[in-house]
């Protein structure tokens, strides 16, 4: 290949890469908190949650060039996230954490958030953790404002199945929250 043509190709590749990087950062900043919550629904450990989040981000980065717009970007990244999370569960090792693992974005407690509120949230998190995986996936996606169609697409099940699972998940969640009271 002649130097000029080679240069043009490298320039085009760099441009594509820059565009991809920008898209990736946009996706992560728009969906980062939701993905972090999703990761936290699979583990109680902060370090594991952060590892899983990193895995998800990496998987999204690797899959992004293949995204052809057959579904919405949100559905696309959540499908990847759920697949990564399932792999994570399969490979899960016993929880370990050392002082070095601890990194909290903002260590100050939020004064506006009451202890009772936190207790309720803790109960909800715990109850969701205790749900069987199929129900946990459906309820967490519902709590992220996903429609039946989107959930069905992410999990690869029918919409009616989403409805059935969601109803059962809600029933179980109610029971678990009742037991915790």
């Amino acid at each position: 290949m002649r130097p000029a043509a080679e240069g043009r190709q490298i320039f085009a590749q760099n441009k594509t890469r820059a565009a991809l990087e920008e898209r990736f950062h946009q996706l992560l900043s728009a969906n980062g908190p939701a993905l972090l919550r999703l990761a936290s629904s699979y583990t109680n450990s902060r370090s594991d949650r952060d590892d899983l989040f990193q895995d998800i981000a990496l998987a999204i980065w690797q899959a992004l060039p293949r995204f052809r717009g057959e579904s919405s970007e949100r559905t696309f990244i959540f499908r990847i996230a759920h697949n990564r999370a399932i792999t994570f569960l399969a490979q899960r090792r016993p929880v370990t954490a050392s002082d070095e693992d601890i990194e909290v974005p903002d260590p100050r407690p939020n004064p506006e958030r009451g202890f009772a509120t936190e207790q309720q949230e803790a109960r909800l998190f715990e109850a969701i953790h205790n749900l069987p995986i199929d129900y946990r996936q459906v309820i967490t996606l519902t709590l992220e404002d996903m429609s039946y169609t989107e959930i069905a697409e992410i999990l690869g099940i029918s919409e009616s199945n989403v409805g059935v699972r969601l109803n059962r998940a809600r029933q179980m969640l109610r029971q678990l929250l009742e037991v915790q009271k």
């Binding site: 109680n44 949650r49 407690p109 202890f115 936190e118 949230e121 803790a122 998190f125 715990e126 953790h129």
Partner: peptide
């Protein structure tokens, strides 16, 4: 480990 990442837990 804590049941959740909250102060209460």
């Amino acid at each position: 480990e804590p049941s959740a990442a909250t102060t209460a837990a």
